[in-house]
Write a protein that binds this DNA or RNA. Structure first.
Lengths: 222, 222
DNA sequence: CGAAACTTTCAACAAGCGTTGAAATTTAGA
DNA sequence: TCTAAATTTCAACGCTTGTTGAAAGTTTCG
């Protein structure tokens, strides 16, 4: 069988695993739940992927390259359309975030589950150190390099802390917990991705400028 | 036995449960692991707390009131020391965040585990809706009311989205994944709480001002 | 002391877990 | 069409899980 041919049951296992892992975490999901959701025998997951942990990793690998290259393309595009000074902070953050919004808006719920799963591992003291670097360090380092150019007075320490804040705001958005819906009494909707990113981008850009901007001094002291 | 008397084994169960739940999540921890960590028989957890889920809830209840009243006290204090205009955005965010830093700096690792556990549920699509409102809605509503006064031109929608970004940055800080340590090559340390909050506060305050500030218009449009 | 109440352990349960080898079924290619 | 390979199911394994009832131990207090 050609590697390119679609394998419907194999893909359905990945789809269901993606969704359930995102909702309940690695230990909160059993292979039997995944198999039942995919309409398939338990042993089939082992046949295609091996151990449970290998299935978990396969879920990540399926979309990793596609997502990373989309975000890298967005950075390259904004760099080419910018003046010789390079792109602004807003443009860089836009390039970092908008591809995620687009993925969430494709209509394929798989992308939403996948990004919620990224949020799960990024916030997990156990999985974070084991998975985030491998998946995203190359990409993030490029973006931080671009931000360093846009904020020439910034200390590296400040840049990384600002990225940490950006990553946190993004992570909670990707997790799709619906908390803001309740808290705002319906005025905000987690599923309104455009609103989420339209608020996140200027918020984060202003934060970067405040902490990494004009002054030579560091951030607020007590 | 008096309710006030310390119950060392009961407390050790809570301590170990707090730590393990924060690291591995609810499903990633077994009652036997907790019992072994506490040097106690499995059945003792059931005797003191009932079902596993009841133990999970007991971990939250132990520190909830203390933490919430500390943060509320900080808000009241900054409101009283402020002029008739009320406290500034920075002062309000400071009151929201600094008590967490102080808790993390007490030297009692239990507080760090507890706050990492809060991060876990806040980022979880399963636990978030079930636990966050009960624990924090009252407190958060008060802080947002204070921010609304400090930012009189803000639309409610914008305020809630900004709070969402604040909550995300805070959550990733509390999770203590150590990601920033690796990414920055040691220039930043997750465990350097003072640095984390000293960067978070001006970052977030600038974001609030940018999105909820002077202009009558909304946040960035495409 | 002695009995009642509380705490802790012991032993066991039924159910569910990940994993595996072999059998059955479907697919691919000559 | 026939055969070999790939896919899928079946059946079962050894282990671990949360929970429980009863026994043993400890504390409290009259």
């Amino acid at each position: 069988m050609s590697k390119l041919r679609s394998q419907p049951k194999r893909d359905r296992i990945l789809d269901v695993a993606e969704e359930l892992f995102a909702l309940h975490g690695y230990d909160g999901v059993t292979l039997r739940q995944i198999a039942k959701g995919a309409g398939v025998d338990v042993a089939l997951a082992s046949y295609h992927f091996g151990k449970k942990l290998d299935l978990f990793n396969a879920v990540f690998e399926r979309r990793a390259e596609l997502l990373n290259s989309a975000r890298l393309d967005a950075l390259r595009a904004c760099q080419q359309s910018a003046s010789s000074q390079g792109p602004s902070v807003e443009q860089i953050i836009e390039a970092f975030l908008r591809p995620l919004e687009l993925a969430q808006e494709t209509g394929d719920p798989g992308w939403q589950h996948y990004l919620a799963l990224i949020a799960y591992i990024n916030n997990s003291p156990y999985w974070g150190p084991r998975m985030m670097s491998k998946l995203f360090d190359e990409l993030v380092t490029e973006f931080i390099a671009a931000l360093r150019k846009a904020l020439p007075r910034a200390r590296d320490e400040d840049l990384y802390w600002c990225y940490h804040n950006l990553s946190g705001a993004l992570t909670l958005t990707l997790a799709q917990t619906g908390r803001i819906d309740k808290l705002s009494g319906g005025k905000c909707l987690s599923a309104d991705f455009e609103a989420a990113y339209n608020h996140m981008i200027p918020f984060v850009a202003a934060g970067f400028r405040q902490v990494c901007g004009k002054r030579a001094k560091g951030p607020a002291k007590r």
